[in-house]
């Protein structure tokens, strides 16, 4: 399933870039993140607790950042599994100047297996949008805290 969207930060590109790729900020912004361990450059092991309907459960997985093009774009890949099944997602994140702030546009693809696919596919798009929304909102806070 394809997903795309964007978020506007009232902060310069350099500040948004720094926060988006900062492990502490990432950990704080990921909804339901219970564990976030760096395992290598731009690679992390994570535990996420998701509480939405058919995809409810605890997921163990990895987060990877690739194709870094500083302050411009990167690719974020998340691969996780739990009792309800497996989820794989990858998104290209693009940062552009936007009236003094920064626009982050994401576009990518989510694949699901197991009960998530069978029971939750109708909800998956909406749930993903909601979780991504929460992520950016929290990231916004992180960016503001750093500026302060």
């Amino acid at each position: 399933m394809e997903i795309s969207g964007e978020y506007h930060f009232d902060a310069p590109r350099s500040a948004v870039w720094a926060a988006l790729l900062d492990p502490d900020a990432l950990q704080a912004a990921m909804p339901g993140c219970e564990r976030f361990e760096e395992t290598g450059p731009d690679a992390y092991d994570i535990t996420l607790r998701v509480g939405i309907s058919a995809i409810k459960g605890t997921y163990e997985g990895t987060v990877k950042v690739t194709e870094r093009s500083p302050e411009d774009s990167y690719r974020l890949s998340v691969d996780g599994g739990g009792k309800p099944g497996k989820v794989q997602g990858t998104a290209l994140m693009q940062l552009t100047e936007d009236g003094g702030g920064t626009r982050v546009a994401y576009s990518g693809d989510i694949k699901a297996q197991g009960a998530i696919a069978r029971l939750g596919s109708r909800l998956l798009g909406g749930s993903a949008k909601m979780l991504i929304g929460q992520f950016f909102k929290e990231m916004d806070k992180q960016v503001k805290q750093r500026a302060a």
Binding site: M1, Q113, A117, R118, S121, R122
Partner: peptide, 10 residues
């Protein structure tokens, strides 16, 4: 779906 996942599972 295109990955062979059954999406009409209930």
């Amino acid at each position: 779906d295109e990955d062979g996942q059954l999406v009409t599972g209930s």
